[in-house]
Amino acid sequence: MVDVDVRTRNNVVVTGNPDGPVVMLAHGFGCDQAMWRLVVPVLEPTCRVVLFDYVGAGRSDLSAWTEQRYSTLDGYTRDVLEICDELDLRDVVFVGHSVSAMVGVLAVAARPAVFAKLVLVTPSPRYLDDGDYRGGFSAADIDELLDSLESNYLGWSAQMAPVIMGNPDRPELGAELTNSFCRTDPEVARVFARTTFLSDNRADLEKVSVPALVLECRHDAIAPPEVGAYVHARIPGSTRVTLDATGHCPQLSAPDQTAAAIARFVTGAP
């Protein structure tokens, strides 16, 4: 069905208990599957954990990236569905962080038969303010983020390209550089940032037909509690758990709480 090696393309890693329920952990904008490394050990004994990098992120196959495919969330959703098909996954509990929560919403809406449950970690269906809706950001704020990205990528191609391209078979060399986790090609990052922060998926929330958990932090500058409440209200029958944690990445700032909430939802009654 797909004429590419999806496992390599998306750097798919399968770990944990082969007989357990399938938990697919999807990273958001800014990083890669390394984001989940404090949560994975907690889930491994009971779950079959599937990790991956979206094309363009982490150790995915950069040559498979095209601006056309990855400038809408549909492209990222196709990555998820192609991985599910390639691994023949069923009854998947999809855990999407940040923008990946919306990728999860789109994936469930497109192929409900593949998914059993959906966990939305610090989700936001729309970052920009729109009429009465408060996403928290203006278009100018997003331009400012793009500037921040750009000024922190100065010299990227000169520094990174020889390391990555000169040692394709020794990717660990890249990890020795400072701030080398989650390094992304600036062009890829710019497109992902625009796609993340300019998408509007409010109307897609009601299409979620599987049990859903909204997992949010008490203090989150990117997805504040009001946005979490909005997502919870729009997804029929969803559960909302507010972690006593700060920041947009509870899988790093409160990994035990985050893993426990995911594990409870995976094993508990739907």
Binding site: F29, G30, A34, S98, L146, F181, A221, I222, C249, L252
Partner: peptide
């Protein structure tokens, strides 16, 4: 605000890791 977004999506996660 752009810096906040960058902080939450890049700076804080990298610092943790």
């Amino acid at each position: 605000v752009g810096g906040k977004l960058y902080h939450e999506t890049h700076f804080a996660p990298l610092l943790r890791m």
